[in-house]
Structure formats: C-alpha cells, structure tokens
Design a protein around this nucleic acid. Structure first.
Length: 652
DNA sequence: ATGCGAATG
DNA sequence: GGCATTCGCAT
C-alpha cells in the first residue's frame, strides 16, 4: 500500500493513524494534537430569548427586542415573517402583526441609577440610556450552569482505580461574548476515553509514545439523531472504520449535548453548538444549524467544509484585512485562495499574517481556549441624536454612567472585595473621538460618587484639550481589574482582623479590607487627600491656553496635599521597626502580622493570575497594524507630558 | 501608562 | 445603527 493511501484503508494489522503521544496531549489541552476537541456554544437570538424567559412568552410566539426605533434581536419564531435586525419597529409590525416588541430596560435621568423596563422608553431617547444588565445576568447564570454540568462530567469520570489518571482535569471555558462560549473538551475526553477504552491505558509514560494506538474497537458509531454531521471530504467514506478522532468527536458531541440540555432544563434557553478540532471550525460549525442544534465537523470533513466558505466569514477576516485579501487575490472563496502559495501570500501580506492565513484556510488553527469567564472592562455609553451642548447636560449623563457602572461593579463583587478596577476612562466624540483616563487609587473606597467625580475631572481635561461641543457621543468605562481576596475564606478572616487592628491603631474608619496595591504599612493617607480634593471648589476655566504655566487644576491642587500628607504621616519614627524579607521595606512591628498577611494574599492573587494565563498562544492571529494608517493622528497639541506625570503622582 | 482603531457580536 | 467587549499598536 502506498503512503498516499488513506491511513484507514483496511489492512492486515490495523493501526490508528494517531499515537499515544497524540492521546496523552489531550490531558493538558495541548493545542498541537490532532485529537483535540473544541465546542463553540452560541445562545439562539440571545436577547430575544432573555425576554421570552422573563415574560414567559411561548416559544412559538414571534418576539423581538427593541431599542428606540430599531430591533436588536429577533427570535426564530419571527424570522419566517421576514423580520430581521435591520428592520424598524413599524416595518416589523407590518410584516408580523402579532409580534411582541419588547423594549430593552433603561436608566432614566433622575431615577436613582436604577434600570427598569418602562412602557414609554421608546419615546425617551432623550432621557434614557439602555441597560443590558438583564442580559448580563442571564449570561452569568447560563455560564454557571454550563460549568456545573462540565464539573459533573469531571467528577463522574474520575473514580476508582483511574483516579490517578483522571483527577485534576479541568475543561477550559472561555466566555467569548455575552452569548458565546468556547469549551476545550480535550482533558475531559481524555478521561472519558480512558474509562471506556481500557486499551488506551496500556502505555503511560514509555519511550514508545510515538507508537500508533490500536484501532478503536468500534466499527460503526452511533451518532445522536439530533446532531448534524458535516459531510466527509471527497476521498473519505462513511464506510471506513472510525479512528480515534471520530471517537473523540462522538464523545465531544455527547458532552456538549448534555451541557446544552442542562441549560435548557434548568434555565429554558436553547443554544446551538459547533464541535470540531479547533476554535475556528467550531465557531463556523455552531452557525450551521440554528436554532437548537449542534454540528460536528470531523477531521475527515474539514477540507470540504472549509472550501465551501468565503474566507471573509472566518474570524479576523470579516473586516478590512479580509477586504484587502479579496482585493489582492481577486476572490473571497477559501477554495480559490487555497491555490495561492505561501510565497504569493507573503508578497502581499506581512509574514505573520501570510502564514496565519495560509494555515487557517487549511483548517489549522492552534489558538488556545483562554480559561477566562470574568469581564475585563465595563463601559457605559450614550450617543446623542441631537448633539448635546453644555457641561450640565454632559454631567447628567455622567451621573447615569457612574450609577450604571457602579451597579455592575457591585454585581462583580466590589463590595466583597473580589475585584476592583484600577483605571477609569472617559471617551468623547464630536466628529473625531478622544479619551482621557486616570488611575483609581487602590486605597480609596469606590462608590458611585467617586466614579462620578473622576468622570467629571476627566471631562474637564477633555474640555481643556480641544473642541467638545457639540458632543455626539460620551462614554465612561472602567478597566484593569485587580483581584481582591473575597473568594478565600482564610483571607477574609485575616481582613476582618486586619481591619479591626487598623481602626484600633489608626482610628481610621471605612478603609475596609481592600487588597491594596501597596502593603498597608507603606501607604499614606491618600484617601483624605483625594476627598479633600473633591470637596474643593474648582475655580477653573482651563479653556484658556495651552500655555505651559497654566496647569490643569488637578495637578495644582494635589501637589500641596501630597506634601502635607507626607509631613503629617504618623508611625515610622518612634515605633519598633522590622525589615520585611520579602520587600525590604521597613515596617512598624505592630503592623508586622498584617504586612505578612498582605504578602500572603498578594501571592495568592498572583498565583491566580498566573493560572489564568498559564496557557500562552503559539499561533498568532494576524496583527491589525497595516490597513489602519488611513487616519493620521490628529496630534493633540499643547500640553501632554507634565500633566500625565503629575496625575500619576497625585493618584498613585 | 495613555490613547487610539479594528473586529466582532 | 447603538451599545458593548476585547485586542493590538503607538507613544
């Protein structure tokens, strides 16, 4: 038999085309093994389903989610009527007289920062701001349900004598958006296969890892009738005996089905899934059969499957890069781009992008499932239909933004000191957009008013920087989240003690238990400084001049405060000192325990962070550098540097 | 660190 | 088109 023959051609001694090494790599979610299994799960018309669940709408009732005068989600019952996202509410009603149009929840000016579903919100673009909170909440529940179900598979799988082979496995779950997740099923499948196929246990650690596996004992796989299989490539046949990659997909489909089923049983949401060897294929697969179906792309089906696509449908190729490639090579079809050699790609694209594209359209995507479920930033924004023209108007919206974000921070565990943002940013647009950000001091208690005051300060900076009115868009965001210690009971205990100790020693209220950026003994009274700053009346109109001597009010006001703080700061001189072996800082003896605890907590946090990014990608997505430079930087003139430096001094 | 654009949903 | 999130580049 020639080497060109398909490896699973019947033969005297049948061997798998996969090795023990391939199999073992599943355990650690290696990106390199051809036996890898990734699921992409996508909630069907998510916002619409959220409203259906909330309102108790029957599944066959057409429903769409409305935002002002347009639709942002349309359920599957409404789609046959021709209702889609780009349709106005009036058109939707004409197309489908019985459709339920539910407006999104909104915040309303002067209503205490609480969002609500309101009958008249569609008339209130002027006063209301959209809230997506209900959908974020649903997303969290769904994610938790998925995790539970996966955990069930983990514990059900590891028992008895196989413990040593299967314990400690964790399927990576990446929240890709509010309604999408990727799951790396590889480790889970590794343990399931070990249980179900004793022949796989034979070799554990030998030098013979390169040896081929025995063929799977099964000759015909029982695929669930609800699952859609992508047709095999032309040279492959369903009659051929399955190899281990087929078994892997079968188990992956079984696990994914159970996850989807759990979401349905517990929360009444349907979702669609794609199951394949990597994220790209899984993602394409999940869109193939909607709603409420899952699609399996077996290895032997990849070429035909991908060849039928326009490459502009592949992740990262939907924008300008895709347009450029189309222009360069005169086609959008993957099948035609396959005829372009790597050299030819390199002639038009930078090396990175060329090699990435070359492998990607051949079905090779080595990107990791990033085990991340937590949000990285929070943004609250509003576009102004007629632009707004005064700082008064702007500050009303800043109030709403602050309330919105604060509420979300609380949901995120701010009050339990689980997570807090370190940076706040204000974006602003007239025609072009600009933004300003500033640190949120780790020593300060975040509340709604703090966010508002910081936002106001940033707005003044933006104003001092150039044209602001008429303002077409304003947004406030927080980012650079820092892990606190709320999850850990032991640490929480320490915090209570530490806090009591602190208030005894310093008679300082309300600084409760935040894991600060600096060891407690080291940080001074920046809190008071900042509060004082905010209470100071701003005799400012910085509008005048980009003159070097005219500093923004912030820097000027804060300089003396910091000085004073240092001068006034107590401790150190009289007390007994010890020098910490970890950070070489000199610490008062009575703060020693707290300081040690701080290191302990910080280590834990670092460890967590490390685990979170343990897996580093080895396949790099294309860079988005070229294609961009169509817009020259509108060089913001005047003052930039001294201000930044002083801000940092002031706030951190 | 800070500010910006691209891409995606 | 409005709103939201993540990423990478540049300074």
């Amino acid at each position: 038999m020639s080497s060109a023959d398909p490896p699973n051609t019947p033969d005297a001694v049948k061997r798998s085309r996969y090795t023990y090494r391939h199999f073992q790599l599943l355990r650690q979610s290696s990106t390199a093994t051809p036996l890898r299994a990734i699921a992409h799960i996508d909630l069907d018309a998510f916002y619409a389903q959220c409203e259906m669940v909330r309102l108790g709408t029957p599944r066959d009732t057409p429903l769409a989610v409305q935002q002002w005068d347009s639709l942002i989600a349309v359920n599957y019952a409404a789609r046959p009527f021709g209702v889609n996202r780009m349709v106005s509410t009036a058109e939707a009603r004409k197309l489908c007289p019985n459709i339920v149009l539910q407006h999104v929840a909104t915040f309303r000016e002067g209503e205490g920062g609480r969002w609500a579903y309101r009958d008249d919100s569609f008339r209130s673009v002027k006063t209301d701001k959209v809230s997506l909170d209900p959908y974020r909440a649903a997303s969290r529940n769904i994610l938790a349900t998925m995790k539970d179900e996966l955990q069930r598979w983990c514990t059900d799988t590891s028992e008895g004598q196989l413990d040593h082979l299967t314990q400690g496995i964790t399927p990576g779950l990446e929240k890709a958006s509010i309604d999408e997740v990727f799951i790396d099923l590889s480790p889970l499948i590794y343990s399931v296969l070990l249980r179900r196929y004793p022949e796989l246990r034979a070799i554990a650690q030998d030098e013979k890892q390169v040896a081929e596996l025995p063929c799977p004992p099964t000759t015909a796989l029982q695929w669930a009738s609800e699952d859609s299989l992508i047709d095999l490539d032309p040279l492959e046949s369903e009659e051929d005996d399955p190899d281990w990659d087929d078994i892997v997909m079968l188990v992956a489909a079984e696990i994914t089905r159970s996850v989807r089923n759990a979401v349905w049983e517990k929360l009444h949401y349907t979702c669609s899934a794609g199951i394949a060897r990597n994220k790209m294929l899984a993602k394409l697969g999940s869109a193939c059969n909607k709603p409420n179906k899952q699609t399996v792309v077996r290895n032997r089906a990849i070429q035909k499957f991908l060849g039928g696509y326009k490459f502009t449908q592949i992740r990262m190729l939907g924008g300008k890069l895709g347009d450029q490639i189309t222009a360069f090579f005169g086609t959008e079809q993957v099948s035609e781009l396959l005829n372009v050699s790597l050299e030819q790609l390199r002639a038009k694209l930078d090396d990175h992008t060329a090699t990435w594209l070359y492998s990607t359209i051949r079905g090779d995507d080595r990107s990791e499932v990033n085990p991340r479920t937590q949000i990285k930033s929070m943004l609250s924004a509003k576009s102004f239909r007629p632009s707004i023209n005064s700082i008064d108007q702007a500050e009303k919206w800043l109030h709403i933004f602050a309330a919105d974000i604060y509420g979300r921070l609380v949901e995120d565990g701010l009050l339990e000191n689980r997570r807090r943002p370190r940076v706040i940013t204000l974006h602003h647009r007239v025609v072009l957009s600009r933004s300003r950000q500033t640190p949120i001091p780790g020593s300060i208690t975040i509340d709604e008013n703090l966010l508002f005051e910081l936002a106001k300060t940033l707005l003044r900076q933006v104003m001092a920087d150039g044209q602001v009115w008429p303002c077409a868009n304003l947004s406030l965001s927080v980012s650079s989240f820092e892990d606190g210690v709320g999850k850990n009971k032991a640490i929480e205990g320490f915090l209570v003690r530490a806090d009591q100790a602190k208030s005894l020693i310093h008679a300082r209220p309300r600084d409760a238990g935040i894991l600060n950026e600096q060891p407690p003994a080291d940080k001074k009274r920046k809190i008071d400084g900042i509060k004082r700053f905010f209470n100071q009346p701003h005799a400012d109109d910085p509008a005048a001049s980009d003159n070097e001597s005219s500093q923004p009010p912030l820097a000027q006001d804060l300089a003396p405060i910091i000085q004073e703080d240092i001068a006034v700061s107590p401790d150190t001189s009289d007390a007994l000192q010890f020098t910490c072996s970890r950070c070489s800082k000199s610490i008062p003896e009575y703060d020693r325990e707290e300081h040690d605890d701080w290191h302990f907590a910080k280590d834990l946090a670092n460890q967590d962070r490390q685990e979170a990014r343990d897996a580093q990608q080895q396949s790099h997505p294309p860079t988005n550098s070229r294609a961009s430079n169509t817009r020259g930087r509108p060089g913001r003139g005047g003052r930039g540097k001294s201000e930044k430096g002083q801000m940092r001094l002031a706030f951190q």
